[in-house]
């Protein structure tokens, strides 16, 4: 589904990613872990198309399409969706309005018409209940005055409504208490199916107790230095990043 090959990325003349390779197949959940400054967030930002990141070499393909040639919105329309670590506030724009505009933009890209209003309301009500959010959130301005945890729930709410093929979640666990973590993880897990994939970017193993990944990658100094299954995350928790890499490559 997603194929990242020898990706080199420079931000403000500093090379952050130095030849990263990653292959994600449909149905899989991948977790990228690593210390601060390793380039974890850079990877998801580059895939989503954020400006200010210069790809100096390498390629990203998604279902055979050259992602680097696509506009930001085209990537989202193709089914690549990024959940933000720090979701931005948009004063005066109602949450429900953003949801509807995003859903309709994606439908339009697929050649479908706007979603009928009753159908949309039914869908949103169901998803907001699933995220244990108060329906009043729909009428509030996007992320404005939301607590950290509410912002994260809101990101997952968007995922549930938009149903991406590949959901990328950047530090979705940061700033969550244990109850909120469970709700967010349940939301993410409900997206898991054989046609979809999930890429988790996280600093802590804790999240992976709730969303058990198929593959775990350790990202350090711009490269994936080690890959394994969910057990790898647990080893990391015990040994720390430095020790894991110093182990002789098996």
């Amino acid at each position: 589904m997603l194929e990242v090959k020898d990706l080199h990325v420079t931000v403000e003349k500093k090379e952050i990613l130095k030849g990263l390779n990653l292959t994600i197949k449909a149905g899989e959940v991948h977790a990228i872990m690593g210390p601060n400054g390793a380039g974890k967030s850079t990877l998801s930002a580059v895939i989503a198309g954020k400006e200010g990141y210069e790809v100096t070499s390498g390629s990203i393909t998604f279902e055979g399409q050259d992602v680097l040639e696509m506009e930001i919105e085209e990537r989202a329309q193709a089914g690549l969706l990024l959940g933000f670590q720090y979701p931005v506030e948009i004063p005066g724009v109602k949450n429900i309005y953003l949801l509807k505009a995003a859903l309709n933009a994606q439908r339009a890209a697929r050649g479908e018409g706007d979603i009928p209003a009753p159908e949309f309301m039914k869908l949103v009500k169901e998803k907001i209940a699933q995220m244990q959010m108060d329906p009043s959130f729909l009428q509030r301005a996007v992320n404005e005055g939301f607590s950290g945890g509410e912002k994260k729930r809101n990101e997952i709410l968007q995922m549930l409504v938009l149903q991406p093929k590949l959901a990328m979640l950047d530090e979705i666990d940061s700033g969550l208490d244990i109850d909120a973590m469970r709700v967010v993880a349940d939301g993410v897990n409900s997206l898991r199916d054989s046609k979809r994939a999930i890429l988790l970017v996280t600093h802590y193993q804790r999240l992976l107790d709730y969303i058990v990944p198929d593959k775990v990658h350790v990202l350090m100094d711009g490269r994936i230095v080690k890959s394994g299954d969910a057990e790898l995350a647990k080893e990391l928790e015990v040994q720390g990043y430095e020790d894991i890499v110093e182990e002789p490559a098996a």
């Binding site: 930001i72 919105e73 994606q106």
Partner: peptide, 14 residues
Amino acid sequence: EDQLFYCRSRGISE
């Protein structure tokens, strides 16, 4: 720029 990126990354045109 951040607001624009946020909206566009949801599939909404610039």
